[in-house]
Design a protein around this nucleic acid. Structure first.
Lengths: 140, 140
DNA sequence: CTGACTGCAAACGTTTTGCACGGTA
DNA sequence: TACCGTGCAAAACGTTTGCAGTCAG
């Protein structure tokens, strides 16, 4: 577990207990919706308000600490900012799994940006489907 | 312009004027949010209600006529279902441009699905950045 | 000590719902 | 004609806001 107090301060945000808890829980859960963040954080720090969670998520996305993962047909989830990767979104259980990027895809995106004269700032790749676990449950 | 009455009937939906107009306008505009769909459709068919637009968008997504394009930090847009492609999302003007897929990416996604034992049903690739037009305006 | 942050409650905008009426097949 | 679809209004929901009190730096 990283020192999130420093991470936060580096972005100009004060390291409150609320913020640190939010970030820690997002790391722990990987990909998580705002309501779920609230649920887990409130169990650790019961007096936190939902508004605080909303304000901080927004702020941390703005500062680049968090990344929004928009998902078709559902509420967005949030994750810690990290190296680009692909999301495998299970349409049965809703779980999101990370999948490392290959160089191939970087090259492809680069060639697109050249060809279209489009400056790529951020990328987001979701594959929707059925995860291993749900395939097994499905079969039984 | 395709015959959307038939397209709708094939999915089991009745071809009402409201639905046909919605689909036509989505085709015309390419990528469009629900509120914008309502705005353009109401100018053609003033008595339509927002609830009808919502109900039909949802229904048509379910039936596979439309596809939701979720966009980080914004409301989802909708487009007609078509061959997979990449979305270039301009973070300045909000416009979304389609970019044809290369085989490369298909192969990549296929290899991921094999390796992770994840059955891919749908894919969604967004590149966020600055479009040609906005770069020019920016420079001036 | 001071500005940034929190928690609360109210406001707001978006989406969903139930129901009576109207239109498609 | 039967049933699906529409429009309306209200309700439910998610998110944002303003403000007074609190806390990190």
């Amino acid at each position: 577990m990283k020192d999130y107090a420093i991470l936060l301060k580096n972005t100009g945000l004060k390291a409150t207990f609320q913020r640190i808890t939010i970030v820690e829980q997002i790391e722990k859960h990987g990909h998580i919706s705002i309501e779920c963040i609230y649920d887990v954080v409130v169990s650790i720090y019961p007096s936190i308000s939902l508004a605080t969670v909303y304000k901080n998520i927004l702020l941390m996305v703005e500062k680049g600490v968090l990344v929004e993962v928009p998902i078709a047909g559902k509420k967005s989830k949030y994750e810690l900012a990290k190296k680009d990767h692909i999301h495998l979104v299970c349409t049965m259980c809703g779980e999101v799994e990370d999948q490392a990027h290959q160089d191939q895809i970087e090259n492809l995106f680069y060639s697109i940006s050249q060809k279209q004269n489009f400056i790529v700032i951020k990328q987001q790749v979701n594959l929707y489907g059925i995860c291993d676990t749900c395939q097994i449950e499905e079969a039984s």
